[in-house]
Design a protein around this nucleic acid. Structure first.
Lengths: 325, 325
DNA sequence: GTGAAAGCGCTAACAC
DNA sequence: GTGTTAGCGCTTTCAC
């Protein structure tokens, strides 16, 4: 910058003004400075600038479980777009469901002085972020609540959705309903299981633990569990799958053996049109989840200091068809 | 930092040394400094640090078309992982296929002094990056070549793959093969179309422009085109779809009308198992594409100044079944 | 082994 | 309108 000033025959400050489009500079000087900038290939260093002026970094951080997963990719896409609308850069990192890694990545983002943080929690203790929040870094948690922290949160109505789904299966006359879920260590799975149970008592159906199978990690595991359950003498007449990877495996197994058991799934399908038969699901608006969280974060960054709020977004039962008992 | 020094009764420099884990500091002083750091909630400011020391920012930028698209989400996931292995943060932005936006985002990333750039080109002129490259910012282009720039590039063998696919259809006895593609403005589409044509002449089949339909934006448009082509008197006996969104539409339409026309698609399917019949595709390793590009970028960042190279990754014909003529 | 002083690139504050 | 000075938070250099 000093070189530019010398070449243009002006002071440092004038160069600074021109480079920052500040008003009240003689057009002639502006031209001279711009010419010098071009000749010398000068580029302003925003790091030094924000160091002195104390301006925010115009960067936010997004921590998700796994970028390649379509659910998180959708979230990342929406957040990226809203960040761009706010002239903000976006740093994305994956925790891979590892609490230690989550903590390390969040600390690193804070160290880099991001203006705000969007977090899908992996661990269940986020107390280490309290100091950061008090220091003034806004944070919004989405899809799952933070552990040990009162903070802005945007969630889906997992429990209500699962209750609705179970109710539908009961209305169709089913009494023996297999409930398939991933690890109970995951918040959303616990909520969905609770919701499914909520619907049983009002219908006068006892809760039978033999019909609940957790720890199902993927489609093939789901297919095996379904196969096994259907081979039992008191086989379920319907299945409630608590996420779409499990649903996929159930479809394949039911289709493979030509079973007429009913199936209802949590999470919608992109390719629902290709499924061998109409599938009723509990759907929700992933984009709206991300939008609500990102908008809330930017309101905080703009200075909104009101009490932390928790937003719960509705789910919707999309009835495409369901085998009766 | 000055406060910490005062509280610990040492100099600024000693605090600096402790904070940076520099050797040759008395354990006693280390403890005093650490205590002061904890009490005052001090956090080192890496911006100021790198300003003085001129160290790299430990950040790379990734520019893709659209984060939510599974192809780019897969790339982003691999790049994020390799960035993490190199203790580097990742900034992701979407060009949405808009050259102006691409230029704006790349400029912004350069301004922020990223250590390197991974770019899926949207526009066809990247000469504006030449100054940046000469200034020492490494860049690797992937999936499509940069325009007007000699630079590191990692591509897929689109042309060879399409040639293989077309050859397979010809071997199955088809002579009237409908070729369906998205906009010819996209590099990969042009390459794939060229490859498809490459296979015709050796088989003695003339190139019939009425069998080629471009500008197909999505599944429903593809379904309409297929419907229309099948209604003609000289209907194709086979279709070659040049991307998977088009393939999806073709499947739906063929399935809807119970047509026995053959179909071969470029791009593999996640849910190939759910498609109503076995589908032969030209597949490739998206993760390997991203891995090769990211590894090359980090080698450049580490100082590799050898001549720019272009890597072309092979495609593979995955034969799952194909209707004969 | 530790400290004092200079300076990274830029901008706030104020003088002219 | 423009220039001068000081200083953002840290690290470098070099003296002790």
């Amino acid at each position: 910058m000093a070189d530019v000033a010398a070449r243009a025959g002006v002071s440092l400050k004038t160069v600074s003004r021109v480079v920052n489009n500040a008003p009240h500079v003689q057009p002639e000087l502006v031209e001279r400075v711009l010419a010098a900038v071009a000749e010398l290939g000068f580029r302003r260093n925003p790091q030094a600038s924000s160091l002195r002026s104390g301006q925010p970094s115009a960067t936010i951080g997004l921590l998700i479980e796994e970028i390649a997963n379509p659910f998180y990719a959708t979230i990342a896409g929406v957040v990226a777009e809203i960040a761009r609308q706010n002239d903000t850069m976006l740093i994305i990192a994956s925790s891979e469901e590892d609490p230690d890694r989550e903590q390390q990545l969040l600390r690193e983002m804070c160290t880099r002085r991001v203006d705000g943080l969007l977090v899908v929690p992996a661990g269940d203790d986020h107390a280490f972020l309290r100091a950061e929040i008090e220091l003034g870094t806004p944070m919004v948690f989405l899809d799952r609540p933070a552990g040990g922290l009162i903070a802005d949160t945007v969630l889906l109505d997992n429990r209500g959705g699962a209750r609705d789904g179970m109710r539908r299966l009961l209305e169709a006359g089913h009494r023996r309903i297999g409930i398939l879920l991933d690890s109970l260590g995951v918040y959303t799975m616990r909520e969905r299981l609770d919701g499914a149970q909520d619907a049983l008592a009002p219908a006068g159906v006892p809760y039978d633990t033999r019909l609940v199978r957790d720890g199902i990690r993927g489609p093939s595991a789901a297919a095996r569990v379904v196969s096994e359950m259907l081979d039992r003498p008191d086989a379920p007449t319907a299945f409630f799958s608590l996420n779409n990877r499990i649903t996929l495996g159930v479809i394949e197994e039911l289709h493979r053996r030509g079973s007429d058991a009913a199936l209802l799934g949590f999470d919608d399908f992109d390719m629902a049109g290709l499924v061998p038969y109409p599938l009723t699901v509990i759907a929700y608006d992933t984009r709206e989840l991300a939008r609500a969280a990102a908008e809330l974060l930017f309101r905080r960054i703009e200075g909104d200091r009101s009490w932390p709020r928790t937003v719960v977004l509705p789910t919707e039962l999309v009835a495409r068809g369901l085998a009766p008992r």
